[in-house]
Design a protein around this nucleic acid. Structure first.
Length: 909
DNA sequence: TATCCGACATACA
DNA sequence: TGTATGTCGGATA
């Protein structure tokens, strides 16, 4: 359950008549406990209460109090030994009128009327495991507003089936934006009189909803009609005439109005009851997208960018430069004036703007800088020089686009209140100003220049530019400063929709033959590069880290470099996080691409490094791009993918199942091989696979269990949408890819934790089948093992290969075949073989410890570490005659060798 | 054929 | 339910 669903459930509970016996269970149900859990509590099996209440282990101790005895009952809960023994996080006592609760960890207490429980649901959110909710807890209004609008929206669609059609949806979305504006306006004094809108609807409409539509249409009309100076507008009844002229585009179009039922009218009024003035246009806007989108409803704000992550984009993009210019200006009035002029001319463009939170944050930060300018000039601000028309966006979803326009207006009003004053803000706000230029459409298909036309600046304007700090406009642009930013959608090639693939084709076909493995997000980088071509500027996006790793680097980055761009700044990988309870599972980076001559900044966690250049692997250094290749660059062993079953689990048995099968059918013994994937290689474990040679097929099929497994594989492969699976459906006893030779091999895990200092690799005899979760070198001399487990090789893999989150991912084509190795003499090989054997021996000495245990960086046995040290020393001496000082030096050498070896090869061709 | 990756997947404590 | 660490097989070349 997400926070909105919990809010709805808790609010409902507190509105129902109080049922003393049922309350504890209904309360737990509201926080998402499963029916089975509650059943067990009810039966007493898991109820640990010692005071006649309900105590759920690790969660909450609830007791219903005698009327008027809530405080006393809470004290009893607190004193109860079971409360502590069962590690309750909360205690709660209520008599149906008053409610007392305490969070035991923090000592925070809640005391409220029972009916007000819905407004305090945030207090209990940790019960649902939602603990990253500091902002939500402090500002529950955003969640409550979302939840109530959600109900209204769904009900309106039920009452007005025709409004659900694609061409009418936009009108419904515009209608919702109007409602939100009215709720906001009546709580902030934009409308004269508290709750003017809600109370007008309340009093003027029938309870059955029949004339709600007529009343609303009348109000819309009024808000779109300018009043003759101070006089009443002719033709409007006085209740409608009390509404001001609002317009600003919001009420201009005739979108009609949906019809209301008793229920939808009630939801409208309930939404109006909230106090909307503290709405956060960034948080709320992102959450509310879920309202109009069934797909998103379950994931509630999963993809909205948190403010810290937005700042990772906006600060280095242009805000830090503005702040620096402010510092340099000190109290110099002329310089401060110039900076304010500059602020009034900057354009911010988010081509994937969603509900507009990047634009909103950019606007607020710019207003803060303007406020500081005014303070230093000793002047009072009467009207901001920054206009919403400086903000541009493209958004594919109509409702989000609508919300983006509205969020900017709300942000403007809130900034006016904060920096000018309450009364002045009210006086300024109506009629609504033009809001941001938000275009609804597919950013990969429409012309960006049309949405955000680059305008030239006058010579005078250019003089005002910031020749300070990192930004140098001198001799550069004749155009306005435009900053492109945002968090476009990510989608790997496997999961792209047909429409997204078509979008990709429209962008990449002219640059590349093979582009289909690129992530969808890379389209935005190319579009931005095309937009910036021939003018100066910077574009920065939050992105999945995969565009700066592995195979995608060689596809995407040459295009961007050719368009004249460099990496202007970047944040290395960080885990995606926002306030949503179910975060998207992705590791992100921020990359700014631009063509300004300013120093480059690389942010790694809390550290920043300035540099002359940043590579597409997000390291500092000279630009080298490593391309995958099918055979090794150096004279080293051939390495391949492991054996791929595509069996839906049918070929694989754990040790116990395999043994019991073989006990019953001894003739099946030879059909099995030990099976090793990433997990077995590192963490050990006992798994076997069916490895059926064609001439054993009769034996295999004759066995009921194995025959059954084979036919399951056939069915699975037939149903699969993968070509390889289909093609191998008629040989269902075989793996779909099987390089296994029956000889011995060296295997490296394809994924491994970044905590380890050495790659997990091992040596296997011919009776073990290595799965496609590892890469294998069959019949390879042991000195290859020495290279694989070296620090030198790991440094290369860590930089060049792809990653799974930030963990190492091994690839033969990208990491092994490209690895530069100097010519090895027979003596070199003998020494390395010796080192490899010593490592294997050192491991053996700790039998049966697994590789994961042995290579835990904190527990690594000294003899094993010594063997590795010796191995690294021996190998590194072959490279440079001594040990490398660090990984930076290792990579420098490797890149130098790689460049030399690949250019030589090119010349030879 | 043969890989590379996943707005991931899932087992733990 | 946050933390730790690697499954599995589709889409692509």
């Amino acid at each position: 359950m997400n926070a909105v669903e919990i809010e709805e459930a808790v609010s409902d509970l507190s509105q129902e008549p109080f049922d003393a016996a049922e309350f504890p269970f209904s309360f737990l149900a509201a926080f998402g406990n499963k029916e089975a859990t509650i059943k067990r509590l009810r039966s007493g099996n898991t109820n640990k209460s010692d005071v006649g209440g309900v105590l759920q282990r690790n969660n909450i101790h609830i007791a219903v109090a005698e009327p008027g005895q809530t405080v006393e009952t809470l004290a009893r809960l607190k004193a109860s030994p079971q409360t502590e023994r069962q590690k309750a996080k909360f205690i709660l006592a209520t008599d149906g009128a008053q409610l007392e609760a305490e969070e035991l960890g923090s000592g925070e207490v809640l005391s409220c009327r029972y009916g007000d429980l819905g407004n305090n649901f945030g207090f209990f959110l940790p019960l649902a495991g939602i603990s990253t909710v500091a902002e939500v807890k402090n500002n529950p209004i955003d969640i409550k507003a979302t939840s109530r609008l959600n109900r209204l929206y769904v009900q309106l669609l039920k009452d007005n089936a025709d409004w659900g059609s694609p061409d009418k949806r936009g009108d419904l979305n515009r209608f919702m934006a109007r409602m939100i504006f009215c709720f906001f306006a009546e709580d902030t004094g934009i409308f004269q009189g508290d709750d003017l809108f809600t109370s007008t609807v309340q009093t003027m409409t029938e309870a059955d909803g029949s004339n709600t539509r007529d009343v609303l249409l009348r109000l819309f009309d009024a808000m779109n009609t300018r009043a003759p100076d101070g006089a009443a507008r002719p033709g409007f009844p006085s209740w409608a005439d009390r509404f001001p002229y609002v317009n600003g585009g919001l009420f201009a179009d005739d979108i009609g109005c949906p019809t209301f039922s008793r229920t939808s009218r009630a939801y409208l009024l309930r939404a109006g009851e909230l106090d909307w003035k503290t709405i956060n246009p960034d948080i709320f806007g992102s959450m509310i997208q879920a309202v109009a989108d069934e797909d998103e409803r379950g994931e509630l704000g999963m993809h909205y960018t948190s403010v810290p992550n937005i700042q990772k984009v906006l600060d280095p993009l242009f805000l830090d430069d503005l702040r620096e210019q402010l510092e340099q200006a000190g109290t110099n009035k002329r310089m401060l004036f110039n900076l304010r002029q500059r602020l009034s001319r900057i354009r911010v463009f988010d081509p994937a703007c969603g509900s507009g939170n990047f634009l909103v944050i950019a606007y607020i930060r710019m207003r803060e800088i303007e406020d500081e300018i005014m303070r230093r000039r000793g002047e009072a601000l009467t009207r901001s020089a920054i206009s919403l028309t400086q903000f541009f966006g493209i958004e594919i979803k109509s409702f989000a686009a609508e919300i983006a326009r509205l969020s900017l207006l709300i942000a403007e009003f809130q900034c006016d209140v904060r920096f000018i004053g309450q009364a002045e803000a009210r006086a300024l706000v109506l009629p609504l100003h033009a809001t941001g230029n938000i275009r609804q459409g597919n950013a990969l298909r429409i012309d960006w220049e049309e949405v955000c036309p680059p305008a030239t600046v006058s010579a005078e304007e250019r003089d005002l530019g910031g020749p300070t700090g990192r930004l140098n406009l001198e001799g550069g642009s004749e155009e306005r400063e435009i900053y492109i930013c945002g968090n476009p959608p990510y989608q790997g090639s496997v999961n792209q929709s047909q429409a997204q693939k078509a979008d990709m084709e429209s962008i990449f076909k002219k640059y590349l033959k093979t582009y289909k493995d690129l992530d969808y997000v890379s389209s935005w980088f190319v579009r931005a590069a095309e937009y910036l071509k021939g003018r100066s500027g910077v574009a920065a996006f939050v992105s999945t880290n995969s565009i700066c790793q592995g195979e995608q680097v060689a596809m995407l980055w040459p295009i961007l470099f050719k368009l004249g761009l460099e990496i202007d700044f970047a944040h290395t990988s960080f885990l995606w996080k926002n306030n949503a309870s179910n975060n998207a599972g992705v590791t992100c980076i921020v990359v700014g691409i631009g063509n300004l001559t300013r120093q480059k900044l690389l942010f790694e966690g809390s550290e920043v490094r300035a540099a002359l250049g940043i590579t597409p692997y997000l390291t500092i250094g000279e630009r080298v791009i490593v391309r995958k290749q099918t055979s090794p660059l150096s004279p080293i062993a051939k390495m391949q993918s492991g054996n791929k079953p595509t069996d839906n689990g049918n070929f694989i048995l754990d040790g116990e199942d395999k043994r019991s099968l073989v006990r019953s059918f001894p003739e099946t013994e030879r059909l099995f091989r030990r099976f090793v994937g990433s997990r077995e290689l590192t963490q050990g474990g006992d798994r076997y696979c069916l490895w059926i040679k064609d001439n054993d097929l009769a034996v295999a099929s004759a066995n009921p269990e194995i025959g059954n497994r084979i036919s399951n594989v056939r069915a699975f492969r037939l149903e699969s949408r993968g070509k390889q699976a289909n093609e191998n459906a008629e040989t269902p006893h075989r793996f779909v890819f099987s390089p296994h030779t029956g000889g011995s091999c060296i295997a490296v895990s394809n994924v491994s934790s970044e905590r380890r200092e050495y790659l997990p690799a091992n040596y296997f005899s011919g009776d073990t089948v290595v799965s496609n979760l590892a890469s294998v070198a069959y019949d390879a001399p042991l000195w290859n093992f020495s290279i694989i487990v070296s620090k030198l090789h790991l440094a290369w893999i860590a930089t060049i290969c792809g990653k799974l989150k930030t963990d190492y991912r091994y690839s033969n084509t990208l990491g092994w075949n490209t690895f530069p190795v100097p010519k090895l003499t027979a003596t070199d090989k003998a020494r390395l073989t010796r080192c490899a054997a010593d490592i294997l021996l050192a491991r053996e000495a700790h039998f049966p410890a697994t590789i994961a245990e042995l290579y835990d960086p904190e527990m690594m046995p000294t003899d094993l570490r010594a063997a590795h040290d010796c191995n690294d020393e021996t190998l590194e001496r072959i490279y440079i005659g001594r040990r490398f000082r660090n990984d930076t030096e290792r990579l420098e050498k490797l890149f130098e060798m790689y460049t030399k070896m690949t250019t030589k090869k090119e010349r030879a061709n």
